[in-house]
Design a protein around this nucleic acid. Structure first.
Length: 205
DNA sequence: CCCTGATTCGC
DNA sequence: GCGAATCAGG
């Protein structure tokens, strides 16, 4: 692979968005994070942040994006582990996680809201009425207390991406415990997310 | 251990 | 110019 104009453009864009070198490398493909970092330096895009600014560099205050683009699927598809778990086993939230470099540093103190009903019609993805083994639920509750409470950006391929809390408030985070190899969730959450769909009995409710 | 960016230096 | 190896951290 070579640094075509297009690839360089992607690199610049992502770097300025604050994406890590490894993330950029993954996105581009065919290059390692080292290659990305090397290129970043050659392009003169280093990120000096230290408090003291030599006073020569001033441009690029990183203006707030005009179109904030609400979190992709993270919000709308966010399952409610506590009450109605089981996010789509197929479409793991990882994709949505990849984006959103700036999750807005918390804001609204307490907006007038009652229930979170993600606008739009997309609400069906909910096999709902799920029967999760009591033990699975129990371990999940337990685990949630030990959750690392990671933010979107802190998630990696090895951290549990199970969302906890209400996405519409600051009271929201991701489990973050070590995920099972190849799985998007930790042991406890995998147990709730991937149900054999077998033990399905009638359920008074 | 996982991850980050920074630097060096042979190619 | 490129990027693996290495360094220096969190």
């Amino acid at each position: 692979m070579s640094w075509t104009d297009e690839r360089v453009e992607t690199l610049k864009k992502m770097w300025q968005e604050g994406q890590s070198a490894s993330q950029i490398a993954k996105e581009l493909g065919g290059v390692t994070r080292n290659a990305v970092i090397g290129k970043v330096h050659r392009l003169g895009l280093s990120n000096r942040v230290s408090g003291g600014r030599p006073e020569d560099e001033a441009p690029e205050p990183v203006a707030a994006s005009p179109a904030p683009e609400p979190a992709p699927a993270a919000k709308g598809a966010a399952p409610r582990p506590a009450a109605a778990p089981r996010p789509d086993p197929v479409a793991e939230p990882a994709a949505a996680v990849r984006e959103e470099p700036r999750p807005a540093p918390a804001a609204q103190p307490l907006p007038p809201r009652r229930m979170v009903v993600p606008a739009g019609q997309p609400l069906p993805p909910q096999p709902s009425a799920n029967e999760i083994s009591p033990e699975a639920l129990a371990s999940v509750r337990e685990v949630e207390k030990k959750a690392r409470k990671l933010t979107l950006m802190e998630l990696t391929e090895r951290t549990c991406k199970w969302p906890i809390g209400d996405p519409a408030t600051d009271d929201f985070w991701f489990c973050g415990l070590p995920s099972l190899p190849g799985k998007p969730y930790c042991d406890a959450h995998v147990g709730v997310a991937f149900q054999p769909m077998s033990s399905r009995r009638d359920r008074r409710r």
